[in-house]
Simulated scan of single mutants.
Amino acid sequence: MSGINLSDSTVIAALSAALTTAGVDGIEIEQRHQKLRIVVERTGAASVLDDAAKASETNIAKAQLAGVFTHSRTVSSSLPCNVTAGEILGFIGIGPVLLPVKASKAGVLTRVLAENGTLVGYGAPLFEIERHS
C-alpha cells in the first residue's frame, strides 16, 4: 500500500476540514521523506507545516510516560525563551511521584502544547522547541 501524498493541497484541505469538524487540535503525519503537521487554532483556522526543512528544525518534547502534566511557571510566563539541553521544562505526576520533562536539545521554546494539570498519555507532545537560527 502506498502512502498518501502529503504535499497534495486537496489532501491537506480535506484533513484540515476533518480535524476542524471533529474538534481535534492537530495531527502530525510522517512518511518516508514527507512530514505534515496541521494545527487547528482555537478560532477554527488550521495552519499547515509541510516544509521538511522547517519540520527538521523543530523538536517536540514528548511525555515519557502517562500521568498528570505540570509545566514550569517560568517556562509558561515568558514564551518564547531560550532553553538548554537537559533543562527541566515541566513534570509528569504519577501519584506522589514527579518525573521531570527535559529539553532534549538546546533551542527556543516556542509553545507549550499541553494544558497545565491535564492527564497526558505516553508520547503526548508537550513542548515545541525550535533550533536557534
Score class of each variant (00 low, 15 high):
72 S>H: 04
69 F>V: 00
98 L>A: 05
88 I>E: 11
83 V>P: 00
82 N>V: 05
78 S>I: 04
55 A>P: 06
86 G>N: 12
101 V>W: 00
77 S>F: 02
34 Q>Y: 11
71 H>N: 13
39 V>P: 03
48 V>W: 01
61 A>V: 11
33 H>F: 11
59 N>Q: 15
35 K>S: 15
83 V>L: 03
102 K>G: 02
74 T>Y: 10
58 T>N: 12
52 A>N: 11
94 I>N: 03
51 D>G: 01
36 L>R: 02
49 L>M: 15
37 R>G: 02
50 D>A: 08
103 A>F: 02
45 A>G: 13
92 I>Y: 01
78 S>K: 06
68 V>R: 02
34 Q>N: 12
71 H>L: 15
81 C>S: 08
74 T>G: 08
60 I>K: 04
68 V>E: 07
77 S>N: 05
37 R>V: 05
88 I>M: 14
80 P>C: 09
77 S>A: 11
44 G>S: 14
82 N>R: 06
58 T>G: 09
95 G>L: 01
88 I>W: 04
91 F>C: 12
101 V>Q: 02
34 Q>G: 03
88 I>S: 13
76 S>Q: 06
52 A>I: 11
39 V>L: 15
41 E>K: 08
54 K>L: 15
81 C>I: 10
36 L>V: 05
76 S>R: 13
52 A>V: 12
59 N>G: 15
51 D>Y: 00
33 H>A: 11
79 L>K: 10
96 P>A: 02
50 D>F: 07
44 G>W: 10
69 F>M: 00
34 Q>K: 07
34 Q>D: 10
99 L>Y: 14
97 V>P: 08
82 N>L: 09
72 S>D: 12
72 S>E: 10
82 N>A: 10
38 I>K: 01
70 T>Y: 06
95 G>N: 02
93 G>H: 12
99 L>D: 13
59 N>R: 12
93 G>C: 13
86 G>A: 14
87 E>D: 05
83 V>R: 01
82 N>K: 11
90 G>N: 05
75 V>D: 00
101 V>N: 01
77 S>D: 11
52 A>W: 06
85 A>Q: 14
56 S>Y: 06
96 P>K: 05
61 A>H: 01
80 P>W: 07
80 P>I: 07
90 G>C: 04
87 E>Y: 04
66 A>Y: 00
37 R>D: 01
56 S>T: 04
49 L>W: 04
37 R>I: 08
64 Q>C: 13
98 L>K: 03
55 A>W: 06
46 A>H: 02
57 E>R: 12
73 R>H: 14
58 T>D: 14
79 L>I: 07
82 N>T: 13
39 V>K: 08
69 F>A: 01
73 R>G: 09
93 G>T: 09
96 P>G: 01
103 A>L: 09
74 T>N: 15
66 A>T: 03
103 A>I: 01
47 S>Q: 15
88 I>R: 11
48 V>L: 03
75 V>L: 05
60 I>G: 07
46 A>E: 08
